[in-house]
């Protein structure tokens, strides 16, 4: 039976924890709003580039002559996995669910006898994956110093990918991140970015537009495709940032509620034992008086 002082201490410590989780929840809510705005601001560009690419690629077709970023290298041996997670924990199942998806993917690829390389973005994912796939991780990128996620950050990674691709270091690149649906729902997603997955061509004008190209079709496609890789990375990172804050918000909300419940339970126990002690003392006094 814990003493009354123990109980009081316990309640005080849970209350302190609750204050922290409450504060974290509010900070996450504020950051979420900003992350969501950034993700929304990036959407028009990604949509337009998708549309332009779809139009262009439809003109060229998947046959020969298509650039390798669309057509692939013709091989399917070396897979590069880019796993984007958060820099910090305390956000529910956010990091582990992305890592789990990546892990399943790695295992199925290894089962098929493919070669696997992993690039991790964010510390948490690296920590989780390192335990199992230490040898496959070729690079770990940390975004800890990055305050606001600008396109440059994504562009650097994108350029690095293109370079490695052109050097023949991998055949297929897949990006793992968490798609932001709502505060309570983030969906871990695997998206193939090299060779590019092109959206269906949308016919928005009604009539087939005969495009003029300046300088020419191939050159445009050649400079547009690498950019598209960076754009996809950028979009994934933004989605991830919003998802992280959303996940943290709901995790901290849960934690705050649990702490509240625990405080209630502990207070009840505290009051009961306090009453029991008073009753015991009374009985002792009364029986003492009777004995005289």
């Amino acid at each position: 039976m814990p003493s009354l002082k123990d109980l009081r201490n316990r309640i005080a410590s849970v209350k302190a924890t609750q204050k922290i989780t409450k504060a974290m929840q509010m900070v996450a809510a504020a950051k979420l709003r900003r992350a969501q705005l950034a993700a929304e601001a990036a959407r028009p560009f990604a949509e337009r580039i998708d549309r332009v690419l779809a139009n262009l690629a439809a003109g060229i077709g998947p046959g020969d002559g298509a650039p390798p970023l669309i057509a692939g290298t013709g091989k399917d041996d070396v897979h590069l996995l880019i796993v984007a997670t958060a820099e910090r924990g305390l956000c529910g199942g956010f990091n582990s669910s992305i890592a789990r998806l990546a892990r399943d993917h790695v295992q199925s690829l290894l089962g098929q006898g493919k070669q696997v390389k992993i690039i991790t973005v964010g510390k948490k994912g690296a920590d989780i994956l390192r335990r199992q796939f230490e040898d496959y991780i070729i690079e770990s990128i940390e975004l800890r110093d990055v305050k606001t996620l600008t396109f440059d950050v994504a562009d650097r990674l994108g350029k690095k990918l293109i370079e490695a691709y052109e050097a023949g270091e991998f055949d297929v690149a897949t990006l793992f991140y968490s798609q932001f649906r709502s505060v309570i729902s983030q969906v871990p997603t695997a998206q193939r970015i090299i060779p590019a997955q092109l959206p269906e061509r949308v016919n928005d004008g009604g009539l087939e537009a005969v495009y003029e190209y300046e300088p020419n079709e191939e050159e445009i496609l050649e400079s547009l495709l690498p950019r598209n890789v960076s754009v996809q990375v950028f979009r994934a990172l933004l989605e991830n940032a919003a998802s992280e804050q959303g996940a943290r918000m709901s995790a901290m909300d849960n934690a705050t509620r649990n702490a509240g419940e625990m405080i209630k339970k502990q207070t009840l126990i505290y009051n009961r034992s306090r009453q029991a002690i008073i009753t015991k003392e009374l009985i002792e006094i009364i029986s003492g008086a009777e004995a005289i």
Binding site: V52, L56, A209, V210, Y211, E212, Y213, E214, P215, E219, I220, S223
Partner: peptide, 18 residues
């Protein structure tokens, strides 16, 4: 554009330029 400046007015034919 890479081949020099150009001005686009209403009703320009479809064009894609770097």
């Amino acid at each position: 554009s890479v081949n020099g400046e150009m001005t686009i007015l209403v009703g320009h034919s479809p064009l894609m330029a770097v």
